[in-house]
Design a protein around this nucleic acid. Structure first.
Lengths: 244, 244
DNA sequence: CAATTTTCATATGTCTGACAATTAATGTTT
DNA sequence: AAACATTAATTGTCAGACATATGAAAATTG
Protein backbone atom coordinates (compact mmCIF):
# COMPACT_ATOMS: atom_id res chain seq x y z
CA UNK A 1 0.00 0.00 0.00
CA UNK A 2 2.14 2.83 -1.27
CA UNK A 3 1.66 6.18 -2.84
CA UNK A 4 3.51 8.11 -5.46
CA UNK A 5 5.54 10.84 -3.78
CA UNK A 6 5.98 12.43 -7.17
CA UNK A 7 4.34 15.41 -8.76
CA UNK A 8 0.67 15.68 -7.99
CA UNK A 9 -0.51 17.29 -4.79
CA UNK A 10 -3.54 16.08 -3.10
CA UNK A 11 -1.74 13.46 -1.11
CA UNK A 12 -4.92 12.87 0.84
CA UNK A 13 -6.67 11.74 -2.32
CA UNK A 14 -3.85 9.34 -3.12
CA UNK A 15 -3.89 7.89 0.35
CA UNK A 16 -7.64 7.55 0.34
CA UNK A 17 -7.36 5.79 -3.02
CA UNK A 18 -4.74 3.38 -1.72
CA UNK A 19 -6.85 2.43 1.27
CA UNK A 20 -9.98 2.19 -0.85
CA UNK A 21 -8.20 -0.16 -3.24
CA UNK A 22 -7.13 -2.30 -0.32
CA UNK A 23 -10.72 -2.54 0.83
CA UNK A 24 -12.08 -3.34 -2.62
CA UNK A 25 -9.35 -5.91 -3.19
CA UNK A 26 -10.11 -7.56 0.12
CA UNK A 27 -6.73 -6.84 1.68
CA UNK A 28 -8.64 -5.03 4.38
CA UNK A 29 -11.70 -6.90 5.50
CA UNK A 30 -14.91 -5.80 7.16
CA UNK A 31 -14.55 -4.66 10.77
CA UNK A 32 -10.78 -4.77 10.54
CA UNK A 33 -9.09 -1.91 12.29
CA UNK A 34 -6.82 0.35 10.30
CA UNK A 35 -3.56 1.55 11.83
CA UNK A 36 -3.92 4.63 13.98
CA UNK A 37 -3.68 8.03 12.34
CA UNK A 38 -0.19 8.47 13.72
CA UNK A 39 0.92 5.11 12.35
CA UNK A 40 -0.60 5.80 8.95
CA UNK A 41 1.12 9.17 8.91
CA UNK A 42 4.41 7.44 9.48
CA UNK A 43 3.76 4.69 6.93
CA UNK A 44 2.82 7.12 4.17
CA UNK A 45 5.36 9.68 5.36
CA UNK A 46 2.87 12.52 5.60
CA UNK A 47 1.47 14.56 8.42
CA UNK A 48 -1.45 13.49 10.56
CA UNK A 49 -3.67 16.20 9.05
CA UNK A 50 -3.19 14.71 5.60
CA UNK A 51 -4.05 11.26 6.86
CA UNK A 52 -7.14 12.64 8.54
CA UNK A 53 -8.31 14.28 5.34
CA UNK A 54 -7.88 10.96 3.58
CA UNK A 55 -9.90 9.17 6.25
CA UNK A 56 -12.67 11.76 6.02
CA UNK A 57 -12.92 11.08 2.33
CA UNK A 58 -13.41 7.40 3.01
CA UNK A 59 -15.88 8.11 5.79
CA UNK A 60 -17.93 10.23 3.39
CA UNK A 61 -18.38 7.12 1.26
CA UNK A 62 -19.25 4.98 4.29
CA UNK A 63 -16.18 2.87 3.64
CA UNK A 64 -14.90 3.34 7.17
CA UNK A 65 -16.26 4.41 10.53
CA UNK A 66 -14.23 5.93 13.35
CA UNK A 67 -14.38 5.49 17.08
CA UNK A 68 -12.68 7.46 19.76
CA UNK A 69 -10.96 6.18 22.82
CA UNK A 70 -8.30 3.67 23.74
CA UNK A 71 -9.52 0.85 21.53
CA UNK A 72 -10.85 3.26 18.93
CA UNK A 73 -9.63 3.96 15.47
CA UNK A 74 -10.86 3.61 11.93
CA UNK A 75 -12.64 0.39 11.01
CA UNK A 76 -13.64 -0.96 7.65
CA UNK A 77 -17.36 -0.51 7.47
CA UNK A 78 -19.80 -3.11 6.23
CA UNK A 79 -21.70 -1.19 3.59
CA UNK A 80 -25.34 -1.84 4.36
CA UNK A 81 -28.11 -1.81 1.80
CA UNK A 82 -29.68 1.03 3.72
CA UNK A 83 -26.58 3.20 3.57
CA UNK A 84 -26.05 2.39 -0.08
CA UNK A 85 -29.66 3.29 -0.82
CA UNK A 86 -29.54 6.66 0.86
CA UNK A 87 -26.29 7.46 -0.90
CA UNK A 88 -27.75 6.48 -4.22
CA UNK A 89 -30.84 8.56 -3.64
CA UNK A 90 -28.92 11.75 -2.99
CA UNK A 91 -26.64 11.10 -5.93
CA UNK A 92 -29.54 10.39 -8.26
CA UNK A 93 -31.46 13.43 -7.09
CA UNK A 94 -28.48 15.70 -7.61
CA UNK A 95 -27.70 14.16 -10.95
CA UNK A 96 -31.18 14.86 -12.24
CA UNK A 97 -31.41 18.38 -10.86
CA UNK A 98 -27.94 19.42 -12.02
CA UNK A 99 -28.17 18.09 -15.53
CA UNK A 100 -31.60 19.37 -16.39
CA UNK A 101 -32.90 15.90 -17.18
CA UNK A 102 -36.33 16.18 -18.71
CA UNK A 103 -39.33 14.85 -16.91
CA UNK A 104 -40.02 12.54 -19.83
CA UNK A 105 -36.59 10.93 -19.74
CA UNK A 106 -36.62 10.36 -16.00
CA UNK A 107 -40.16 9.08 -16.06
CA UNK A 108 -39.43 6.67 -18.88
CA UNK A 109 -36.47 5.27 -16.99
CA UNK A 110 -38.44 4.92 -13.81
CA UNK A 111 -41.30 3.01 -15.35
CA UNK A 112 -39.06 0.85 -17.47
CA UNK A 113 -37.29 -0.22 -14.30
CA UNK A 114 -40.49 -0.73 -12.36
CA UNK A 115 -41.88 -2.91 -15.10
CA UNK A 116 -38.77 -5.03 -14.59
CA UNK A 117 -40.02 -5.69 -11.06
CA UNK A 118 -43.61 -6.37 -11.98
CA UNK A 119 -43.46 -10.11 -12.70
CA UNK A 120 -41.28 -10.80 -9.67
CA UNK A 121 -43.41 -8.65 -7.42
CA UNK A 122 -46.59 -10.34 -8.63
CA UNK A 123 -45.09 -13.69 -7.76
CA UNK A 124 -43.55 -12.84 -4.43
CA UNK A 125 -45.22 -9.82 -2.86
CA UNK A 126 -46.35 -10.45 0.69
CA UNK A 127 -49.55 -9.33 2.37
CA UNK A 128 -47.50 -6.59 3.98
CA UNK A 129 -46.47 -5.08 0.69
CA UNK A 130 -50.05 -5.12 -0.50
CA UNK A 131 -51.25 -3.55 2.74
CA UNK A 132 -48.71 -0.77 2.40
CA UNK A 133 -49.88 -0.05 -1.12
CA UNK A 134 -53.54 -0.03 -0.13
CA UNK A 135 -52.71 2.24 2.76
CA UNK A 136 -50.95 4.71 0.50
CA UNK A 137 -53.84 4.64 -1.93
CA UNK A 138 -56.15 5.48 0.93
CA UNK A 139 -53.94 8.36 2.01
CA UNK A 140 -53.82 9.68 -1.52
CA UNK A 141 -57.59 9.84 -1.63
CA UNK A 142 -57.78 12.33 1.20
CA UNK A 143 -58.51 15.64 -0.48
CA UNK A 144 -56.81 17.80 2.14
CA UNK A 145 -53.48 16.23 1.28
CA UNK A 146 -50.88 18.68 -0.04
CA UNK A 147 -49.35 18.09 -3.44
CA UNK A 148 -46.04 17.39 -1.80
CA UNK A 149 -47.51 14.80 0.53
CA UNK A 150 -49.34 13.27 -2.40
CA UNK A 151 -46.04 12.84 -4.24
CA UNK A 152 -44.39 11.40 -1.15
CA UNK A 153 -47.17 8.87 -0.85
CA UNK A 154 -46.78 8.05 -4.51
CA UNK A 155 -43.12 7.31 -3.91
CA UNK A 156 -43.98 5.08 -0.94
CA UNK A 157 -46.48 3.22 -3.10
CA UNK A 158 -43.90 2.55 -5.77
CA UNK A 159 -41.27 1.52 -3.27
CA UNK A 160 -43.63 -1.08 -1.88
CA UNK A 161 -44.13 -2.39 -5.39
CA UNK A 162 -40.37 -2.65 -5.92
CA UNK A 163 -39.72 -4.20 -2.52
CA UNK A 164 -42.40 -6.75 -3.30
CA UNK A 165 -40.01 -8.37 -5.75
CA UNK A 166 -38.11 -9.62 -2.72
CA UNK A 167 -34.72 -8.95 -4.28
CA UNK A 168 -32.62 -6.57 -2.19
CA UNK A 169 -30.28 -5.85 -5.09
CA UNK A 170 -33.22 -4.80 -7.19
CA UNK A 171 -34.60 -2.64 -4.40
CA UNK A 172 -31.26 -0.97 -4.01
CA UNK A 173 -30.79 -0.29 -7.69
CA UNK A 174 -34.27 1.17 -8.04
CA UNK A 175 -34.26 3.33 -4.95
CA UNK A 176 -32.55 6.14 -6.82
CA UNK A 177 -34.83 5.97 -9.82
CA UNK A 178 -37.97 5.99 -7.72
CA UNK A 179 -37.02 8.63 -5.17
CA UNK A 180 -35.25 11.02 -7.50
CA UNK A 181 -38.52 11.47 -9.37
CA UNK A 182 -40.09 13.16 -6.36
CA UNK A 183 -38.60 16.61 -6.92
CA UNK A 184 -39.69 16.44 -10.54
CA UNK A 185 -43.18 15.33 -9.57
CA UNK A 186 -43.33 18.17 -7.08
CA UNK A 187 -43.20 20.60 -9.96
CA UNK A 188 -46.65 19.45 -10.96
CA UNK A 189 -49.85 20.84 -9.44
CA UNK A 190 -52.52 18.20 -9.31
CA UNK A 191 -56.18 18.91 -9.81
CA UNK A 192 -58.70 16.76 -7.98
CA UNK A 193 -59.47 15.07 -11.27
CA UNK A 194 -55.79 14.33 -11.87
CA UNK A 195 -55.49 12.73 -8.48
CA UNK A 196 -58.59 10.64 -9.01
CA UNK A 197 -57.20 9.24 -12.24
CA UNK A 198 -53.85 8.41 -10.68
CA UNK A 199 -55.49 6.77 -7.69
CA UNK A 200 -57.60 4.66 -10.02
CA UNK A 201 -54.50 3.51 -11.82
CA UNK A 202 -52.76 2.77 -8.53
CA UNK A 203 -55.73 0.67 -7.59
CA UNK A 204 -55.31 -1.19 -10.86
CA UNK A 205 -51.70 -1.97 -10.01
CA UNK A 206 -52.60 -3.14 -6.53
CA UNK A 207 -55.43 -5.29 -7.85
CA UNK A 208 -53.13 -6.94 -10.36
CA UNK A 209 -50.57 -7.65 -7.68
CA UNK A 210 -53.24 -9.00 -5.37
CA UNK A 211 -54.27 -11.39 -8.12
CA UNK A 212 -50.59 -12.25 -8.64
CA UNK A 213 -51.07 -11.42 -12.28
CA UNK A 214 -47.75 -10.29 -13.71
CA UNK A 215 -49.08 -9.37 -17.12
CA UNK A 216 -51.87 -7.28 -15.65
CA UNK A 217 -49.37 -5.53 -13.40
CA UNK A 218 -47.28 -4.67 -16.42
CA UNK A 219 -50.30 -3.29 -18.23
CA UNK A 220 -51.37 -1.26 -15.21
CA UNK A 221 -47.91 0.24 -14.85
CA UNK A 222 -47.81 1.15 -18.51
CA UNK A 223 -51.17 2.86 -18.20
CA UNK A 224 -49.88 4.74 -15.17
CA UNK A 225 -46.81 5.88 -17.08
CA UNK A 226 -48.93 7.07 -20.00
CA UNK A 227 -51.17 9.04 -17.67
CA UNK A 228 -48.22 10.55 -15.80
CA UNK A 229 -46.46 11.59 -18.98
CA UNK A 230 -49.62 13.12 -20.41
CA UNK A 231 -50.31 14.98 -17.20
CA UNK A 232 -46.79 16.37 -17.02
CA UNK A 233 -46.92 17.34 -20.66
CA UNK A 234 -50.13 19.30 -20.27
CA UNK A 235 -48.95 21.01 -17.09
CA UNK A 236 -45.65 22.08 -18.61
CA UNK A 237 -47.33 23.15 -21.84
CA UNK A 238 -49.77 25.35 -19.91
CA UNK A 239 -46.92 26.84 -17.93
CA UNK A 240 -44.92 27.60 -21.07
CA UNK A 241 -47.96 29.40 -22.51
CA UNK A 242 -48.36 31.52 -19.40
CA UNK A 243 -44.70 32.48 -19.16
CA UNK A 244 -43.21 32.40 -22.61
CA UNK B 1 -26.34 27.76 6.92
CA UNK B 2 -25.63 27.07 10.55
CA UNK B 3 -24.48 24.19 12.64
CA UNK B 4 -25.34 23.00 16.10
CA UNK B 5 -22.50 23.91 18.44
CA UNK B 6 -23.97 21.54 20.99
CA UNK B 7 -22.97 18.08 22.02
CA UNK B 8 -21.81 15.92 19.15
CA UNK B 9 -18.27 16.11 17.91
CA UNK B 10 -17.58 15.57 14.31
CA UNK B 11 -18.03 19.18 13.47
CA UNK B 12 -16.64 18.46 10.02
CA UNK B 13 -19.56 16.13 9.32
CA UNK B 14 -22.03 18.78 10.42
CA UNK B 15 -20.41 21.41 8.24
CA UNK B 16 -20.26 19.06 5.28
CA UNK B 17 -23.93 18.32 5.83
CA UNK B 18 -24.84 21.99 5.95
CA UNK B 19 -23.04 22.71 2.70
CA UNK B 20 -24.46 19.60 1.08
CA UNK B 21 -27.95 20.67 2.03
CA UNK B 22 -27.32 24.07 0.53
CA UNK B 23 -26.27 22.44 -2.71
CA UNK B 24 -29.21 20.06 -2.81
CA UNK B 25 -31.62 22.87 -1.97
CA UNK B 26 -30.17 25.01 -4.73
CA UNK B 27 -28.88 27.73 -2.43
CA UNK B 28 -25.48 27.01 -3.92
CA UNK B 29 -25.60 26.52 -7.63
CA UNK B 30 -23.31 24.75 -10.05
CA UNK B 31 -19.92 26.38 -10.58
CA UNK B 32 -20.54 28.82 -7.75
CA UNK B 33 -17.51 29.46 -5.62
CA UNK B 34 -17.72 28.73 -1.93
CA UNK B 35 -16.12 31.13 0.53
CA UNK B 36 -12.45 30.49 1.12
CA UNK B 37 -11.45 28.04 3.80
CA UNK B 38 -10.50 30.90 6.09
CA UNK B 39 -13.89 32.59 5.62
CA UNK B 40 -15.77 29.34 6.17
CA UNK B 41 -13.76 28.78 9.31
CA UNK B 42 -14.84 32.15 10.57
CA UNK B 43 -18.47 31.70 9.55
CA UNK B 44 -18.80 28.34 11.26
CA UNK B 45 -16.53 29.37 14.09
CA UNK B 46 -14.18 26.44 13.74
CA UNK B 47 -10.58 26.02 12.71
CA UNK B 48 -9.43 25.79 9.17
CA UNK B 49 -8.51 22.10 9.62
CA UNK B 50 -12.08 21.30 10.46
CA UNK B 51 -13.35 23.16 7.44
CA UNK B 52 -10.86 21.32 5.27
CA UNK B 53 -12.02 17.96 6.55
CA UNK B 54 -15.57 18.95 5.71
CA UNK B 55 -14.55 19.98 2.21
CA UNK B 56 -12.72 16.71 1.68
CA UNK B 57 -15.90 14.85 2.55
CA UNK B 58 -17.77 16.79 -0.11
CA UNK B 59 -14.98 16.31 -2.61
CA UNK B 60 -15.15 12.56 -2.04
CA UNK B 61 -18.74 12.67 -3.25
CA UNK B 62 -17.82 14.82 -6.24
CA UNK B 63 -20.01 17.60 -4.87
CA UNK B 64 -17.20 20.14 -5.05
CA UNK B 65 -13.87 20.55 -6.76
CA UNK B 66 -11.01 22.67 -5.53
CA UNK B 67 -8.53 24.81 -7.33
CA UNK B 68 -5.41 26.42 -6.01
CA UNK B 69 -4.16 29.90 -6.66
CA UNK B 70 -5.38 33.45 -6.46
CA UNK B 71 -8.78 32.87 -8.02
CA UNK B 72 -8.98 29.35 -6.67
CA UNK B 73 -11.22 27.90 -4.04
CA UNK B 74 -13.94 25.30 -3.77
CA UNK B 75 -16.57 25.25 -6.49
CA UNK B 76 -19.86 23.43 -6.65
CA UNK B 77 -19.32 20.63 -9.09
CA UNK B 78 -21.71 19.66 -11.83
CA UNK B 79 -22.19 15.97 -11.13
CA UNK B 80 -21.69 14.31 -14.50
CA UNK B 81 -23.29 11.05 -15.51
CA UNK B 82 -19.83 9.60 -15.87
CA UNK B 83 -18.83 10.49 -12.32
CA UNK B 84 -22.12 9.25 -10.95
CA UNK B 85 -21.70 5.99 -12.84
CA UNK B 86 -18.24 5.27 -11.56
CA UNK B 87 -19.36 6.05 -8.02
CA UNK B 88 -22.31 3.76 -8.37
CA UNK B 89 -20.19 0.97 -9.75
CA UNK B 90 -17.79 0.98 -6.83
CA UNK B 91 -20.66 1.20 -4.36
CA UNK B 92 -22.55 -1.63 -6.01
CA UNK B 93 -19.47 -3.81 -6.22
CA UNK B 94 -18.64 -3.29 -2.57
CA UNK B 95 -22.23 -3.81 -1.54
CA UNK B 96 -22.37 -7.19 -3.24
CA UNK B 97 -18.99 -8.38 -2.01
CA UNK B 98 -19.50 -7.25 1.57
CA UNK B 99 -22.96 -8.64 2.01
CA UNK B 100 -22.44 -12.06 0.51
CA UNK B 101 -25.18 -11.57 -2.05
CA UNK B 102 -25.79 -14.81 -3.87
CA UNK B 103 -25.01 -15.12 -7.52
CA UNK B 104 -28.64 -15.98 -8.19
CA UNK B 105 -30.01 -12.86 -6.55
CA UNK B 106 -27.60 -10.53 -8.32
CA UNK B 107 -28.11 -12.25 -11.63
CA UNK B 108 -31.88 -12.09 -11.33
CA UNK B 109 -31.71 -8.36 -10.62
CA UNK B 110 -29.36 -7.74 -13.49
CA UNK B 111 -31.47 -9.50 -16.07
CA UNK B 112 -34.72 -8.06 -14.78
CA UNK B 113 -33.24 -4.62 -15.27
CA UNK B 114 -31.81 -5.38 -18.66
CA UNK B 115 -35.13 -6.69 -19.85
CA UNK B 116 -36.49 -3.28 -18.92
CA UNK B 117 -34.16 -1.83 -21.55
CA UNK B 118 -34.92 -4.37 -24.24
CA UNK B 119 -37.93 -2.73 -25.91
CA UNK B 120 -36.36 0.72 -25.81
CA UNK B 121 -33.04 -0.55 -27.08
CA UNK B 122 -34.70 -2.46 -29.90
CA UNK B 123 -36.43 0.73 -30.95
CA UNK B 124 -33.56 3.15 -30.61
CA UNK B 125 -30.21 1.38 -30.79
CA UNK B 126 -27.88 2.89 -33.34
CA UNK B 127 -25.56 1.12 -35.73
CA UNK B 128 -22.75 1.96 -33.33
CA UNK B 129 -24.32 0.06 -30.50
CA UNK B 130 -24.85 -2.93 -32.71
CA UNK B 131 -21.29 -2.75 -33.98
CA UNK B 132 -19.97 -2.69 -30.43
CA UNK B 133 -21.99 -5.77 -29.58
CA UNK B 134 -20.85 -7.65 -32.67
CA UNK B 135 -17.29 -6.66 -31.89
CA UNK B 136 -17.52 -8.01 -28.36
CA UNK B 137 -19.07 -11.23 -29.63
CA UNK B 138 -16.14 -11.60 -31.97
CA UNK B 139 -13.68 -11.03 -29.17
CA UNK B 140 -15.44 -13.58 -27.01
CA UNK B 141 -15.02 -16.22 -29.69
CA UNK B 142 -11.24 -16.05 -29.54
CA UNK B 143 -10.22 -19.16 -27.64
CA UNK B 144 -7.04 -17.68 -26.18
CA UNK B 145 -9.06 -15.16 -24.22
CA UNK B 146 -8.72 -15.43 -20.44
CA UNK B 147 -11.78 -16.00 -18.32
CA UNK B 148 -11.39 -12.55 -16.86
CA UNK B 149 -11.20 -10.90 -20.27
CA UNK B 150 -14.21 -12.94 -21.37
CA UNK B 151 -16.21 -11.56 -18.45
CA UNK B 152 -15.03 -8.03 -19.18
CA UNK B 153 -16.18 -8.41 -22.75
CA UNK B 154 -19.49 -9.76 -21.51
CA UNK B 155 -19.94 -6.63 -19.43
CA UNK B 156 -19.10 -4.42 -22.42
CA UNK B 157 -21.67 -6.29 -24.48
CA UNK B 158 -24.38 -5.72 -21.91
CA UNK B 159 -23.47 -2.08 -21.48
CA UNK B 160 -23.91 -1.52 -25.18
CA UNK B 161 -27.34 -3.11 -24.94
CA UNK B 162 -28.29 -0.81 -22.09
CA UNK B 163 -26.86 2.29 -23.76
CA UNK B 164 -28.83 1.42 -26.85
CA UNK B 165 -31.98 2.46 -25.03
CA UNK B 166 -30.77 6.02 -25.46
CA UNK B 167 -31.83 7.04 -21.98
CA UNK B 168 -28.93 8.36 -19.90
CA UNK B 169 -30.85 7.95 -16.67
CA UNK B 170 -31.41 4.32 -17.46
CA UNK B 171 -27.76 3.82 -18.39
CA UNK B 172 -26.70 5.38 -15.12
CA UNK B 173 -29.04 3.33 -12.99
CA UNK B 174 -28.00 0.09 -14.64
CA UNK B 175 -24.27 0.69 -14.63
CA UNK B 176 -23.99 -0.66 -11.11
CA UNK B 177 -26.09 -3.72 -11.75
CA UNK B 178 -24.18 -4.66 -14.88
CA UNK B 179 -20.65 -3.97 -13.70
CA UNK B 180 -20.98 -5.31 -10.19
CA UNK B 181 -21.71 -8.73 -11.65
CA UNK B 182 -18.22 -8.98 -13.04
CA UNK B 183 -16.50 -10.07 -9.82
CA UNK B 184 -19.18 -12.70 -9.36
CA UNK B 185 -18.83 -13.89 -12.93
CA UNK B 186 -15.09 -14.08 -12.42
CA UNK B 187 -15.64 -16.83 -9.89
CA UNK B 188 -16.76 -19.05 -12.73
CA UNK B 189 -14.40 -21.02 -14.91
CA UNK B 190 -15.76 -21.38 -18.40
CA UNK B 191 -15.27 -24.42 -20.55
CA UNK B 192 -15.05 -23.95 -24.29
CA UNK B 193 -18.54 -25.41 -24.55
CA UNK B 194 -19.87 -22.91 -21.97
CA UNK B 195 -18.44 -20.06 -23.94
CA UNK B 196 -19.88 -21.30 -27.17
CA UNK B 197 -23.35 -21.47 -25.67
CA UNK B 198 -23.10 -17.97 -24.24
CA UNK B 199 -21.78 -16.56 -27.50
CA UNK B 200 -24.67 -18.15 -29.34
CA UNK B 201 -27.11 -16.50 -26.97
CA UNK B 202 -25.32 -13.18 -27.34
CA UNK B 203 -25.69 -13.56 -31.06
CA UNK B 204 -29.41 -14.11 -30.53
CA UNK B 205 -29.67 -10.87 -28.58
CA UNK B 206 -27.77 -8.94 -31.22
CA UNK B 207 -29.87 -10.44 -34.00
CA UNK B 208 -33.08 -9.44 -32.25
CA UNK B 209 -31.81 -5.91 -31.76
CA UNK B 210 -30.70 -5.72 -35.36
CA UNK B 211 -34.22 -6.69 -36.40
CA UNK B 212 -35.56 -4.09 -33.95
CA UNK B 213 -37.68 -6.85 -32.45
CA UNK B 214 -38.34 -6.03 -28.80
CA UNK B 215 -40.13 -9.25 -27.99
CA UNK B 216 -37.37 -11.35 -29.47
CA UNK B 217 -34.80 -9.37 -27.52
CA UNK B 218 -36.71 -10.09 -24.34
CA UNK B 219 -36.83 -13.78 -25.12
CA UNK B 220 -33.13 -13.87 -25.97
CA UNK B 221 -32.24 -12.15 -22.71
CA UNK B 222 -34.37 -14.57 -20.75
CA UNK B 223 -32.64 -17.49 -22.42
CA UNK B 224 -29.29 -15.95 -21.57
CA UNK B 225 -30.28 -15.56 -17.96
CA UNK B 226 -31.44 -19.16 -17.76
CA UNK B 227 -28.17 -20.37 -19.23
CA UNK B 228 -26.10 -18.18 -16.93
CA UNK B 229 -27.95 -19.29 -13.83
CA UNK B 230 -27.69 -22.95 -14.81
CA UNK B 231 -24.00 -22.60 -15.52
CA UNK B 232 -23.32 -20.90 -12.20
CA UNK B 233 -25.38 -23.49 -10.40
CA UNK B 234 -23.45 -26.39 -11.86
CA UNK B 235 -20.09 -24.74 -11.24
CA UNK B 236 -20.87 -23.96 -7.64
CA UNK B 237 -22.36 -27.39 -7.06
CA UNK B 238 -19.22 -29.05 -8.41
CA UNK B 239 -17.06 -26.86 -6.23
CA UNK B 240 -19.11 -27.65 -3.14
CA UNK B 241 -18.67 -31.36 -3.84
CA UNK B 242 -14.93 -31.03 -4.18
CA UNK B 243 -14.48 -28.96 -1.01
CA UNK B 244 -17.25 -29.80 1.39
C1' DC C 1 -12.13 -12.16 47.49
C1' DA C 2 -15.27 -9.49 44.78
C1' DA C 3 -16.95 -5.16 43.52
C1' DT C 4 -16.15 -0.53 42.80
C1' DT C 5 -13.47 3.39 41.88
C1' DT C 6 -9.36 5.62 40.17
C1' DT C 7 -5.80 6.07 37.20
C1' DC C 8 -3.73 5.75 32.93
C1' DA C 9 -2.53 4.91 28.20
C1' DT C 10 -4.27 5.40 23.68
C1' DA C 11 -6.86 7.21 20.20
C1' DT C 12 -9.58 10.56 17.72
C1' DG C 13 -11.30 15.59 17.51
C1' DT C 14 -9.93 20.28 17.36
C1' DC C 15 -7.07 24.42 17.36
C1' DT C 16 -3.08 27.40 16.23
C1' DG C 17 0.43 28.95 13.54
C1' DA C 18 3.52 28.43 10.05
C1' DC C 19 5.43 27.63 5.39
C1' DA C 20 5.24 25.81 0.52
C1' DA C 21 3.11 25.84 -3.97
C1' DT C 22 0.09 27.61 -7.34
C1' DT C 23 -2.19 31.00 -9.99
C1' DA C 24 -4.28 35.18 -11.74
C1' DA C 25 -3.84 39.96 -11.64
C1' DT C 26 -0.84 43.79 -11.52
C1' DG C 27 3.15 46.39 -12.27
C1' DT C 28 7.67 47.06 -14.61
C1' DT C 29 10.92 47.00 -18.08
C1' DT C 30 12.56 46.66 -22.63
C1' DA D 1 3.22 46.21 -27.14
C1' DA D 2 5.30 42.29 -25.40
C1' DA D 3 7.98 40.03 -22.09
C1' DC D 4 9.12 39.66 -17.52
C1' DA D 5 8.87 40.29 -12.47
C1' DT D 6 6.05 41.19 -8.38
C1' DT D 7 2.32 40.51 -5.51
C1' DA D 8 -1.75 38.95 -3.26
C1' DA D 9 -4.94 35.32 -2.50
C1' DT D 10 -5.79 30.60 -1.85
C1' DT D 11 -5.17 25.79 -1.24
C1' DG D 12 -1.83 22.01 0.29
C1' DT D 13 1.06 20.41 3.88
C1' DC D 14 3.34 20.22 8.20
C1' DA D 15 4.40 20.37 13.30
C1' DG D 16 2.94 20.64 17.78
C1' DA D 17 -0.34 21.25 21.24
C1' DC D 18 -4.49 20.42 24.01
C1' DA D 19 -9.27 18.52 24.68
C1' DT D 20 -12.04 14.56 25.00
C1' DA D 21 -13.56 9.89 24.95
C1' DT D 22 -12.87 5.12 26.26
C1' DG D 23 -11.33 0.67 27.48
C1' DA D 24 -8.10 -1.63 30.45
C1' DA D 25 -5.27 -1.98 34.24
C1' DA D 26 -4.41 -0.68 38.95
C1' DA D 27 -5.80 0.73 43.33
C1' DT D 28 -9.18 0.94 46.74
C1' DT D 29 -12.86 -0.62 49.48
C1' DG D 30 -16.53 -3.46 51.61
Amino acid sequence: MKIDPGKPDDLSAQIAGAIRDAIVAGTLIVDERLPSEAELAEQFDVSRSTVREALKRLAAQSLIRTQRGATGGAFVNRLSFEQACSQQITTSTLLLSMNAVSFGTACEARYALERACAPLSAARRTADHLATMRGEIHRQSQPELSDEAFCASDVAFHRALVDGAGNPVLSYQLAGAVEAMQPLMNMITFTARDRARIIDLHRGVADALEARDGAATLAALTALETETQALAHSVFAARAKKRP
